[in-house]
Nucleic acid binder design. Structure first.
Lengths: 241, 241
DNA sequence: TCACTAATCTGACTTAAGTCAAGGGAAATT
DNA sequence: AATTTCCCTTGACTTAAGTCAGATTAGTGA
C-alpha cells in the first residue's frame, strides 16, 4: 500500500476543503449539516499515484471509497490472469461499497489510471452511521439499483452486440457524460488506456483498434491523437442500438 | 395480463397459509411479528400459468414480486428481438425490485417457465413501510449487494470463459443449490428449457447442445432424458474455473 | 535530447461459436 | 390414440474475434 497520508492538521484542512465536494456526492447530497459532519468525522483523505492499487481482489474488507479526483479501474482477474474491467470509476462516485453488506473481502481489485485523491470510509464506523441515518441507506439503495441496471445492460450488450456496436454505445455515453452532444462535431478525449477500454468492452486491444478503424473508414468518426471527433452522430447512435 | 385473482376472503386464507413462507424469505426473515403483519397487509397473492408474462420491459412500474412456487425467467429484448436472460428466479426470492429506487418502469420482462404462485407488493405502500422499518432497507441492501456480485461474476464469465466452462460453472452451482454434491453421482434435473439455459449462459441452443456433448465425450457427465449425472465432479470443477 | 520502454496498430492466421437447415424425439392438442 | 407442434440435436458452413508476431508511435527518465 503506497498511499501517502497527510499529517493530521493538514489532513483536516484538506478535508474541510472538500466538504462541498462530499456534499456533492449523490450519496450524501441530502444529508443534514449534522449528519454530514458525522460522515466527515470518519472520513480519511488519501492520495494515490497513477498505477497504485487501492486494494486487491480477496483483500480483507476495511471500507469503501469515494473518488474525488482522477480515475480508477475496477476489475476481476481470472485463474489464467486475464483481467475483466467491470467498472471505470469517475470523480464524485463511491466504489467498493458492496462488502458493506455482503462478504468480508473485496470482490474486485482497484487500480488508479491516473493520480487520485480519494476519501476512505471505514466499514464499522459507516455502518453505525447508517443505522442512525435512514436517509443514507435509502440513497445507497438508489445507487445500488442504478448500478444493477447498468450491469444488466452490460450483460445484454456482451451477449447480443458486436464489438463495433459496443464501442459505438460507449462513445455515445461518453459524449453525453461530457455534455458536448450538441456542438457541430462532438468529441471524446481518450484519457484511459486503450487496453482498459477494450477490457471494459469485453474485448482485446487489437479488436478495439480494428473497431475504431472500421468507424473511421465508414466516416462515422475521425481520430486525432487522443481525441475522437464524431462526424456522423446519427449513424453512431444507430450503431449503438 | 392473465393472472387469476382469488376472491378476497379466500385470498386472505391463502395468504395466511403462506405467512411462514413469507417469513422464510431472507428479505423479511428478521422482521418483528408486527412488521411482518404490516407487510402481509399490503401483499397480494397471484397465480400465473406457464408462459404467462408478469410484466414486460417498459411497462409502467407498479410493484415488485416474491416468487413462492414455480420459476420465472427475467430477460431483456434488444432491437433485433434477441432475448438475453439475465436471471432465472427461484422460489422464495424477490424480483423486479430495482424500480422501487430507480426509474419508473420495468427494465426487464418476466415470464413464467412453469405455473407460478407469486406475491405482489405495490411500490407506494412498500416504500411507506420501508421508511418506518429500517431493517427492511438494510436487508434489501444486502440482497442488492449479493446480486451485484453475481452480475459482476456473470460479466467476467462472459468476457473470459468459453461456453463449456460457463456450462460447467452453471452445473456446479445447480448441484450446490440442490445440495446433492456429496452423493456418489451428483445429478441435475434440467427443468428449464434448453433455450433459456443457453440464453442465460450467453449462447444459443445449438452451442449448448455441443457443450453438453463435449462433456459427455470426455466422460465428465452422462445424460439420461432430462437428468444430468455427473461422473467426474473434480474435472467439472476444474472446467468451471 | 536521446535511449529505452511501453502502448498501440497492423497483418496473417486460427478458432470458438453463430447461422442455417434438416431430422428425430418429446410434449401438447385434438 | 393419432396428429400436430415444439424442442432439441446434429452437420455443414460462415464469421466475428482472438492469438501471435512485427512494426510504429507515444511516453518516460536520465
Amino acid at each position: 500500500m503506497t498511499e501517502s497520508s497527510l499529517c493530521v492538521s493538514k489532513l483536516m484542512d484538506e478535508l474541510n476543503k472538500h466538504i462541498e465536494s462530499i456534499a456533492g456526492v449523490p450519496l450524501f447530497s441530502e444529508l443534514s449539516a449534522d449528519h454530514l459532519r458525522d460522515v466527515v468525522s470518519i472520513c480519511k483523505l488519501k492520495n494515490f499515484s497513477k498505477h497504485d492499487f487501492l486494494f486487491n481482489e480477496g483483500d480483507f474488507y476495511l471500507g469503501f471509497y469515494i473518488l474525488l479526483e482522477g480515475s480508477v479501474k475496477v476489475f476481476k482477474t481470472n485463474s489464467d490472469g486475464d483481467e475483466t474491467v467491470v467498472h471505470i470509476v469517475k470523480p464524485l462516485t463511491e466504489f467498493a461499497d458492496i462488502p458493506l453488506f455482503e462478504g468480508i473481502d473485496y470482490p474486485v481489485s482497484a487500480q488508479c489510471l491516473e493520480d487520485c485523491l480519494v476519501i476512505f470510509i471505514p466499514k464499522e464506523e459507516f455502518l453505525k452511521l447508517i443505522k442512525e441515518d435512514h436517509e443514507i441507506s435509502l440513497k445507497m439503495l438508489s445507487g445500488f439499483a442504478k448500478r444493477l441496471k447498468s450491469l444488466i445492460s452490460q450483460i445484454e450488450d456482451l451477449s447480443t452486440k458486436e464489438v463495433v456496436n459496443r464501442l459505438a454505445k460507449y462513445l455515445i455515453k461518453e459524449i453525453k457524460l461530457k455534455e458536448n452532444e450538441n456542438i457541430p462535431e462532438p468529441f471524446v478525449k481518450l484519457t484511459i488506456p486503450r487496453s482498459t477500454t477494450a477490457s471494459y468492452l469485453g474485448t482485446v486491444t487489437e479488436t478495439l483498434s480494428r473497431a475504431f478503424r472500421k468507424l473511421q473508414n465508414e466516416k462515422v468518426l475521425r481520430m486525432h491523437g487522443k481525441v475522437v471527433f464524431i462526424q456522423d452522430l446519427k449513424k453512431l447512435k444507430e450503431l449503438a442500438k
